[in-house]
Amino acid sequence: MTGPIVRDGVAHAPSRVVRTLILGAIGLLFAIPFVAMVEFTLRKGLAGGHDFSRWIALFQGGLTGPYRQVLVAVGNSVGLAVGTVLIVLLLLVPAMLLVHIRFPRLRRVLEFVCILPISIPAIVLVVGLAPVYSVLSRIAGSGVWTLSLAYGIIVLPYAYRAIQANLDAVDVRTLSEAARTLGAGWGSVLLRVLLPNLRRGLLAGAFIAVAVVLGEFTIASLLSRVNLQTALVVVSKADPYTAVILSLLSLILAFLLLLLIGRLGAERTRSPRHRPIGGRP
């Protein structure tokens, strides 16, 4: 009997034609809304036809005047994204590693706690967070940075799954024990042994956190904070065409961020250096 058909190193991998058709269908599915948004921004209105007058006016104005709040909102969203990623990396990752290495029996408990926020509607979450934020505002102020605490909760399910998938593929316990046997401290084990092996999961979790923060509206609106999505809603009430243009630009920014993170997460293969036997390079 013959073994399974292997293409490109993967058993039962689809042919190139099938992969092209699948990727083409997915690309078309994503392209249709983008094309519709671009066409909407190019309309002249009742006069008919298309032109780039709205795009030119927006860039010539430099997002000043009524659109200046969008720049402030973008800065707020970027700061919230950085804060949320730091919360995930500094709190969630060490907790997952500690449970995986020292307390494996608590894995189900940690998984339940991290997955729980996905089952709670955002408006219910805000009702529970409102008393907490009222106390927090009296202690630390009511700056927009406080939203990162709530965002750190809502991204837990997505970041946990991304990191846990990478964690299951790496023998973390053996790596840590080997490093400790060679005399490495826990700081070196974490920074020089474990984190490099979890790079893909960490980057995936970071991107998911950034994507959730850039697209979140409900919590920011109900807690009266200004981020990108709340600013776009305000702009859309005055000029829907400009709001769609700004939405397109934010989607392009997120897409470029995805490509950047994918590039950083790609494994760097080094070509082997051949040395003559018994000689010098």
Rank of each mutant, 00 (worst) to 15 (best):
I56E: 13
P196H: 04
P104A: 15
G9H: 03
V127C: 00
T2L: 14
L46D: 12
A209I: 07
G205Y: 02
L251F: 02
G262R: 07
I252E: 06
L46K: 11
L98T: 04
L167P: 01
R16S: 06
T242W: 02
V213P: 07
D168Y: 01
L110I: 07
R16A: 09
L232W: 14
S271E: 13
Y241K: 09
A11E: 15
L129V: 06
A122Y: 04
P196K: 10
V78H: 02
I87W: 01
L222A: 05
R173V: 15
S236I: 08
R68C: 07
V135I: 14
I22V: 15
T269P: 01
S176Q: 13
P33L: 12
R43P: 01
G262Q: 11
S119M: 13
I26A: 13
G141M: 14
G75Q: 14
L147F: 02
P240I: 03
G79Y: 08
I56N: 09
V135L: 13
R280F: 05
R192V: 02
V124Y: 03
L147P: 05
L260K: 00
V38F: 11
A57P: 07
V235D: 04
R16L: 04
I153M: 12
P33I: 08
L214H: 07
G205W: 07
A169S: 15
L248Y: 07
V18S: 02
G279L: 15
P240S: 08
A47G: 09
V135W: 14
A162P: 03
A178P: 08
G45I: 08
I5G: 09
